[in-house]
Design a protein around this nucleic acid. Structure first.
Length: 568
RNA sequence: GUUCCAGUAGCUCAGCUGGAUAGAGCAAUGCCCUUCUAAGGCAUCGGUCCGGGGUUCGAAUCCCUGCUGGGACACCA
């Protein structure tokens, strides 16, 4: 609706001979109106006129939808809206959430969750790409994009060499390491936890022992060259590891259209190289590609595509993946939801892809901030290690359990799990995507104030009322109080909230909106008793309000991949 | 060394393309449950928006500069 009015205003300005983008903002002085326009000062500067006179010219032309119009200060236009116009809008959105969804040009997008390492368990850092990635995927779907999500596991490279060398050192499954073995290869039997430990011990050993590291490199290179037995062994390990990775992603409500990884891109490397080869040159034994541009103000090192031992590196696989995605999906855009620290790397890969014409798609790295500890440095557990994501989930889950009412018995586990994920997701999505934030277990387990449980608690109240009333199709007939009006005006901002979210690829606008809407509702809830209202017209409108607020919260929680509960 | 990002209340963070008195949550203090879930509501307290210049009617926001913190800078991913 506000968008519609903005377009109307832009056309009106054109009639008056002005050219300017119009944004309607919620008024910062509520006593002067619901909304404000700040364009007159800008117009005055641009066209060398008096801002108040410009404002007056605009005000004269406004149609019936604008009411209580006034010009204040240096040229602010304040106004309210025609009540019927507002009510029509709200009632149309009562059951149809699409009314609040901005109209955006459709596109096909591949979204890449940025390579959880197949040999290791997910750690807290992976939570961000999971939460942000999944929410962006859902937001994309909401605005009508064709979204293809890919977990894109890091299932090739040194971690493979690490694990295999560890198995070899342990003296287990030795037939895989015997080139003359002719018999039947056993299938391996490790748990994901064991693999994690094995990786850790190999990693420590190799970084302290150059000989061991050399062995790791050799095995890695062997796999890279396509050594069948090694590949066979490694793929089994990836499969084991994937199970636990998938479990955690499932808990976080992540949906993947593709559960692929670097291994899947392997077969596309020759075709990719065919296009990239003309741009490669030798440097210190490796094959690299220049990605500098004339307009660069910063240093742009060449991209290393083939290592000096002839093996591939992550850039090789990423380029091959881009090639493959172009061939298979022909996307308009590819989004990488990966830690900010890789921004230079992605810049190089993107440029290389454009130069070698691997894809027509626009490539974007939507980086997110690092999770730091209270000391401002990357988060570590007390023993100096990295906290596993599953450990974090369990930690929050235990705290939720303590907080839950004892009379919730059936479905208790399910409710607990949903509250846990809501707590984590809301806290994680609350700050702007690109900023680093401090991971404070206290903050992440807080259930008071601006948190996931607060929103879910509001949902419980809303549902409780809706379930107790018989009729289902309510209409908002009138607006009787300032509390109701505040809620409705907030809802008119939703369209621009979603627009900003998809523009900036950040979910903080949505978490913010959810909190504001929930707060306004809770205020209303504490002021009026809905079900005992005797004025039937009022009650109908109250229930209409409940319905529309519920629909908004419900749909937005769905975008954030947070499940709601009926009680808590 | 080069470069990118950040610095807003005691703490954790918002603040959209410059707009009218700078916002939340937590923490602190005091109220509100015979009422649709008190994981709630209300109120109070709390700020040289890192320092210094500049641009203009107007700057937390844009530009320059200094300080502080963090990241990245090819054979790891």
């Amino acid at each position: 609706m506000l968008k519609e009015l903005e377009i109307y205003l832009e056309n009106l300005l054109k009639e008056l001979g002005y050219e300017e983008k119009v944004t309607i903002l919620a008024s910062s002085k509520k006593e002067l109106g619901w909304y404000q326009l700040n364009i007159c000062m800008a117009l005055a500067k641009k066209y060398h006129e008096n801002p108040v006179l410009v404002a007056n010219k605009i005000v004269e032309k406004l149609d019936y939808r604008f009411t209580s119009v006034n010009v204040a200060g240096p040229g602010f236009i304040n106004f309210k809206l025609d009540e019927k116009y507002l009510l029509d809008y709200l009632n149309s959105g009562l059951t149809n959430f699409k009314v609040f969804v901005p109209n955006i040009t459709k596109k096909k997008v591949v979204i890449d969750f940025g390579g959880a390492n197949a040999a290791k368990a997910l750690h807290v850092g992976h939570m961000r790409s999971a939460n942000i990635g999944e929410a962006l995927r859902r937001l994309g779907v909401l605005v009508g994009y064709d979204m293809i999500s890919d977990v894109h596991l890091g299932d090739l490279g040194r971690q493979a060499g690490m694990l295999l060398s560890e198995i070899k050192k342990r003296g287990e499954y030795l037939e895989y390491f015997d080139p003359n073995f002719k018999g039947e290869y056993r299938s391996v039997d490790y748990t994901p936890t064991e693999l994690g430990k094995m990786y850790a011990s190999a990693n420590i050993a190799a970084s302290n022992d150059e000989e061991r590291m050399e062995e790791v490199r050799e095995i890695t290179a062997e796999i890279d060259k396509g050594n069948k037995t090694y590949l066979n062994l490694w793929k089994q390990l990836v499969a084991i590891s994937s199970i636990s990775i998938k479990e955690v992603y499932d808990e976080l409500n992540c949906h993947f259209d593709l559960f692929e990884g670097e291994l899947d891109a392997f077969k596309d490397i020759p075709a990719m190289l065919k296009k990239v080869n003309p741009y490669l040159y030798e440097s210190n034994g490796a094959m690299v590609m220049d990605v500098k541009e004339e307009s660069d103000t910063k240093e742009m090192p060449p991209l290393l595509v083939i290592k000096k031992d002839g093996a591939t590196i992550y850039a090789t696989r990423d380029l091959a993946t881009i090639y493959s995605r172009e061939e298979r999906f022909n996307p308009d855009e590819i989004w990488y939801v990966v830690d900010n620290r890789q921004s230079l790397y992605f810049e190089q890969v993107f440029r290389a892809s454009y130069i070698a014409n691997l894809t027509d798609a626009k490539l974007y790295h939507f980086g997110f901030g690092t999770i730091n500890g209270t000391d401002g440095k990357p988060y570590k557990t007390r023993d100096g290690g990295v906290m596993q994501l599953s450990t974090l989930i369990e930690l929050i889950s235990n705290l939720i359990e303590e907080k839950m009412k004892p009379d919730i018995i059936d479905d208790r586990l399910n409710i607990k799990n949903k509250l846990t994920i809501a707590t984590l997701k809301y806290a994680d999505l609350m700050s702007y995507r690109a900023t680093d934030y401090i991971f404070d277990p206290v903050k992440f387990s807080s259930f008071d104030g601006k948190t996931g449980p607060y929103i879910l608690y509001t949902v419980v109240r809303l549902k409780s009322i809706l379930n107790k009333s018989v009729k289902k199709d309510y209409k908002i007939l009138s607006i009787n109080s300032i509390e109701e009006l505040d809620i409705y005006l907030k809802i008119t901002e939703l369209e621009s909230v979603l627009e900003r979210s998809i523009r900036d690829k950040s979910l903080n606008y949505i978490t913010d909106f959810l909190f504001e809407l929930a707060s306004l509702f809770n205020k209303f809830y504490n002021t009026y008793h809905i079900l005992s209202e005797t004025d039937e017209t009022k009650k109908e409108s109250f229930l209409g309000l409940i319905t529309i607020v519920y629909n908004c919260i419900h749909n937005l929680l769905n975008v954030l991949a947070i499940d709601e509960v009926d009680r808590m």
